[in-house]
């Protein structure tokens, strides 16, 4: 069994002030690049999976259809990120092998996206909190020194700009809707809040990527995220929680209990019939 990172002694390097450097060397250690691509692809894979759980169960037909579009975009992005990850790894795996045949500790997604759907308000709030990070991340990645990353980011960025427009709009409308919708959105925000900070905490992988001009430093995205949140939450008449405690570990493979259950559903067929073609 692979050893898990030690929970009590954080090995998280914290380089300050890294920004994407288009003129960077364009090379990072291969394992850092692979890690980074897994982080991108696992975010979209796990969130896409969560969103797809709503299919056929949304509060209104129009919303069912809209959510499916979001999930489809995210699955498509997963194919691109994990496809590139597999190529970079060069060990004969493909995107499907990475998605369906890794165990939880090898997943690198943010803890936020593995949160269970909860009510529809929590699902929308999770989407908004993620989109508000995802959109500036992809914008920054368009300038990556690796054109393969830039290309994926450009395509995904167009889709995610719409995701953000939609999720922000719904958060505003429901926050400033009825008393009940307001209360539900505030609860959703409060509950999800401790899972948002992780996205901005850098580690050694981020340092290597940023240093090579391949990806932005996570903390460099904070200002854009804060600005989006301030605008949207204020229009939504919602209160931004003050406690900045952040659960962390997803990007290093330390997950919550929820991910294992998600994977045992998602990976069921591939695990039950090893080697079969579908």
């Amino acid at each position: 069994m692979p050893s898990l990172p030690d929970m009590t002694t954080p090995n998280l390097a914290r380089p300050e002030g890294l920004t994407p450097r288009p003129g960077g060397s364009g090379t990072a250690p291969a394992d850092a690049l692979f890690e980074f691509l897994l982080r991108m692809g696992d975010n979209t894979l796990i969130l896409g999976h969560r969103v797809s759980e709503w299919c056929g169960h949304a509060p209104v037909l129009e919303e069912d259809i809209a959510l499916a579009n979001t999930a489809l975009d995210l699955i498509g992005q997963t194919q691109m990120w994990l496809g590139l990850a597999a190529e970079v790894e060069g060990r004969g795996r493909d995107a499907d092998a990475l998605a369906f045949l890794r165990d939880a500790w090898d997943f690198r997604n943010l803890l936020l996206v593995e949160r269970p759907n909860g009510d529809f308000g929590q699902t929308l709030m999770r989407q908004f909190l993620f989109d508000a990070w995802h959109a500036p991340m992809l914008t920054a990645l368009e300038g990556s020194a690796d054109p393969r990353i830039g290309e994926i980011a450009a395509k995904a960025g167009r889709e995610v700009a719409y995701h953000l427009e939609r999720s922000a709009d719904l958060v505003i409308r429901l926050g400033d809707g009825t008393e009940e919708s307001h209360a539900r959105m505030q609860t959703a925000l409060d509950r999800l809040w401790p899972w948002t900070g992780e996205a901005f905490i850098p580690d050694a992988t981020d340092a290597a990527m940023a240093g090579a001009g391949l990806a932005p430093a996570p903390d460099s995205l904070r200002a854009a995220w804060d600005a989006t949140l301030d605008t949207v939450l204020s229009e939504a008449t919602l209160t931004r929680p003050e406690d900045d405690f952040a659960h962390r570990g997803g990007r290093q493979g330390r997950h919550t209990e929820h991910l294992g259950h998600l994977l045992s559903t998602m990976q069921w067929l591939q695990r039950a019939y090893p080697g079969a073609q579908w």
């Binding site: 129009e62 259809i65 809209a66 579009n69 709009d169």
Partner: peptide, 18 residues
Amino acid sequence: HAPDAEMAIKHARDVYTR
């Protein structure tokens, strides 16, 4: 169906331009 014009446009994008 949509609550207002802005959302109707979003829904139309999602429903009729798939």
